[in-house]
Design a binder for these strands. Structure first.
Length: 596
DNA sequence: TTGCCTTTGAAGGCT
DNA sequence: AGCCTTCAAAGGCAA
């Protein structure tokens, strides 16, 4: 079982994830007994290592374009040698210590210069390159490391990790005296994004709009820095690899999560290039990004007066300033109350900033893939897009999903580290920061009586016929049996649950039909679903992006080739489904679920 | 202006 | 333990 924490025992992953990883662990146990199984696992790991490369095949062209081509092995060896040499010279024990001796994130610091005020790199020059086969990559082929690489790649698809590796080390060396030299030298870029969020930064959960200048949370244990005597937050060994930045780089470094990136229409946050003095320098020593992360997430009321030196003003996504976002919807109601009540309410709200939940694996996936789907499908309705993404999610291979699960797990870990006392319950309606009161009285599988109107992409409308091999399509990563398919969650779930997204689109009568006869092709099911209720989401989703290929794999029937005009898969699609069905016949899970 | 739609996963509460 | 509910993101749309 891959333990990112090096067996720290603080695996904060969900149970299902634990189960999943347990499964992997079990696999490993079996591996010891079975050499072939070992090879399989090795393949899996290898696939993770070469994730970016393989993704080029499974991803859309747009994404493939962002990703650099595979590097030659000789180059890897060469870089590795140089890297190790450099590490010996400059590490100075700074990065020593497993389990992430050569963690790629070390290279992040150097990438921050573009964000500096004086780093007036032209937009064209801001082209990041991530070398999937970085030297560290080769040197440390652990699952965790690979995931981290993927993490980086997802955040900075254009980031040149390799090129920045040594520079970053040098930057770390000169941390206390951040000179424009190393700043300018680095070629890291800021990828502007139309939506203020990098399309390939799944962890950019948080937007700058809720910028809340502040300082590290008081709840963090006051670990005192022996040198400065300044209290500092603990250095979570689990997250440190992600923010191994030196104090000097603090404030200059874009947060790995991406919310630090300057965005359109928004000024770059004031970053002091000349010696950023952070209230918690030691914490920053561990991780500049982390420090920025911490220092920017907390509202003024949580910030000690003398800790206002932080000028980075980097907001964390997870924190939403109540007055900005959460309070607007209730302003009217609040006006009805007495001013006293208002004041008390405001004060209370100020005291409890809205901390958003960390994104789960699917949400991370959605953030990353949404833009792509929108581009492919000319769809903007989130509901329809989410359906598509849901299908694609199910179509993702185990490795691909594992990547997101791991990211989500780290998100939760980081979130927990930052907000030890936070509970998801805090965001529930009735507590603070309620944006809206949800009225979800609908029964599972049926609407709440309200017409679904958010679908605009219907048959003959829009164009979602993108190449069949885009991410997660069946063609690329055919989800096979539940064992292979794999999200950790689904490993522990009944097979029928995988069809839930589709099942929910079917009315009871439609399901009744299913129980009476062999299930029709997915496209037909969708068609029936579309006829049985006003919503056209199902149809639209089926049409978008490869039509039937977007259907959950479990709905594919070995003998039922999609033939409906509503969804006409390409030749390759048919072939893909046929091969899939032939090799991985799926039970009538849909019928099973409906019977249940 | 507000909440719903839609997806999956996480988490807390309840039985 | 299992079930239920809510929230997380996203943007269009109805009320």
């Amino acid at each position: 079982m891959p333990q990112l924490n090096g067996g720290g025992g603080d695996d904060l992953g969900a149970n299902d994830e634990l189960i999943s990883f347990k499964d992997e662990g079990e696999q490993e146990e079996k591996i010891s007994e079975n050499s072939s199984a070992e090879r399989d696992l090795a393949d899996v790991k290898s696939s993770l290592v070469n994730e970016s490369e393989t993704n080029q095949n499974s991803s859309s062209d747009s994404e493939a374009e962002r990703r650099p081509p595979p590097r030659s092995e000789s180059f890897r060896d060469k870089s590795r040698e140089s890297l190790e040499e450099a590490a010996k010279r400059q590490d100075g024990g700074l990065f020593k210590g497993p389990p992430y001796p050569g963690y790629p994130f070390i290279m992040i610091p150097d990438l921050t210069s573009p964000y500096l005020p004086n780093g007036s790199l032209s937009p064209t020059a801001r082209t990041l390159h991530i070398q999937s086969g970085s030297t560290h990559y080769s040197a440390y082929k652990t699952i965790e490391h690979q995931i981290a690489i993927q993490y980086l790649q997802m955040k900075w698809p254009l980031l040149d990790v390799q090129a920045g590796s040594l520079q970053s080390r040098q930057a770390l060396k000169d941390a206390r005296s951040p000179s424009p030299a190393h700043i300018v030298s680095n070629k890291v870029p800021v990828v502007q994004h139309p939506h203020h969020v990098h399309p390939l930064t799944p962890l950019i959960t948080y937007s700058n709009e809720h910028f809340t200048p502040g300082n590290p949370p008081p709840h963090l244990p006051a670990d005192v820095d022996p040198k400065t005597g300044i209290p500092r937050p603990p250095h979570p060994p689990d997250i440190s690899p992600y923010y191994p930045l030196s104090p000097g780089t603090v404030g200059q470094i874009p947060h790995p999560l991406g919310w630090l990136v300057p965005q359109q229409g928004q000024p770059v946050y004031p970053i002091t290039t000349g010696g950023f003095r952070h209230p918690y320098p030691t914490a920053l020593t561990v991780n500049a990004s982390m420090s920025s992360f911490l220092s920017s997430r907390f509202p003024p009321h949580m910030v000690p007066p003398h800790h206002t030196l932080h000028t980075t003003g980097i907001p964390h996504p997870a924190i939403v300033t109540p007055t900005v976002k959460q309070e607007s919807s209730q302003s009217d109601v609040a006006s009805l109350h007495s001013s006293k009540h208002q004041d008390s309410k405001k004060e209370e709200e100020k005291k409890k900033p809205h901390i958003k939940k960390p994104l789960n694996a699917f949400m991370l996936y959605m953030k990353e893939m949404r833009a792509k789907v929108v581009a492919e499908c000319t769809l903007k309705e989130s509901a329809a897009i989410n359906q598509i993404l849901g299908r694609r999610w199910h179509a993702l291979s185990r490795e691909e999903q594992a990547k997101y699960y791991e990211l989500a797990r780290k998100e939760r870990q980081l979130h927990m580290q930052l907000y030890p006392g936070w509970s998801a319950r805090d965001n529930y309606v009735g507590g603070y920061g309620k944006k809206k009161k949800r009225k979800r009285d609908k029964q599972p599988g049926e609407t709440n009586g309200k017409k679904k109107k958010c679908v605009r992409y219907i048959q003959g409308e829009g164009s979602c016929l993108s190449p069949p091999s885009s991410d997660g399509s069946l063609l690329d990563s055919p989800p096979s049996s539940p064992n292979m398919l794999g999200s950790p969650t689904r490993d522990s779930k009944p097979q029928t649950e995988q069809t839930q997204p589709l099942s929910l689109t079917l009315k009871p009568d439609s399901l009744a039909h299913l129980t009476m006869m062999p299930p029709p092709p997915p496209s037909l099911l969708l068609a029936e679903s579309a006829h049985s209720k006003p919503s056209t989401l199902a149809v639209s989703a089926a049409h978008c992006q490869n039509g039937a290929l977007d259907l959950p794999p479990s709905t594919l029937q070995p003998s039922a080739a999609p033939s409906s005009s509503l969804a006409q898969p390409s030749t390759s699609s048919l072939h893909s489904q046929g091969s899939l069905a032939g090799t991985q016949p799926q039970p009538l899970s849909l019928v099973t679920k409906s019977l249940e």
